[in-house]
Amino acid sequence: MLDRRRNTSIKTSIFAHCVIAFLVVPTLMVIPISFNDNQYLKFPPTDLSLRWYEEFWSNPDWLRATWTSLLTACTVTVLATVLGTMAALGLSRMVGPGKKLLIGLIISPLIVPTVSLALALYFFFAKLHMVGTWVAVILGQTVLALPFTVLNVHGSLQSFPATLERAASTLGAGPVTTFFRITMPIIRPGIVAGALFAFLVSFDEFIIALFLAGPGMTTLPVQMWNTMQLYISPTIAAVSSMITGITILAFVLMTAFGRRSKAK
């Protein structure tokens, strides 16, 4: 009886590890490939080399794409964080069925397939003659990032005692002062988490950038796609490794930040 249970738990454990491996290994495979001194994407690597990283850092196209991506992601982060925080503040003060509906609408970009969203945005911006502009890419990606900031900030507002704002108001603080001096410092973990998600959403967003960006506004994922159209170069693996590295770093930072603010 006990034996059988142990057997089952071993089987479960093996299965779980297989699933995790399936999720992680393909992503991690690109890292050794990127250090391979071979013309072709080959695993396992034959000779170690940094030539594909060198190739990346000496190619102006890659550098420009990186710069565009960073600039876009930062702008989207700022926009989505400011808008999302304001929306979350409003939502947290709402009662009744309107609130649920509004939350549903705001997070709908998570549900609607991104291709459909991108297509819809394409037609929308076409009407406004904005396809191919940087603003269109920014706005499109902000729509995609907004659910993350709204949900994170709204979540941290759930545990925020409403009487603190009342207390601040009797003490002489107007609404704006109250937000910056009282509310924001307390819900900062939610805002930071939302901002990081927004950054990551934009940084590796591909479809909207592909549909809406004009020439000279190629972001990193789009540049990868363009490169792959011509030939498969291990440079792609090097770029992937670096993006993965940045993403992991961001999450580690976020976790560390969350833990510190909780300990406080």
Partner: peptide
């Protein structure tokens, strides 16, 4: 409320958790 010059004490204290006691009182 912030222009009424009224003081209020709440049942749940409502101290600002991210400020120390002196900062709370000086607010």
């Amino acid at each position: 409320p912030h222009q009424r010059n009224i003081g209020m004490v709440f049942q749940d204290y409502s101290l600002f958790p991210h400020m120390n006691v002196a900062q709370n009182v000086a607010f």
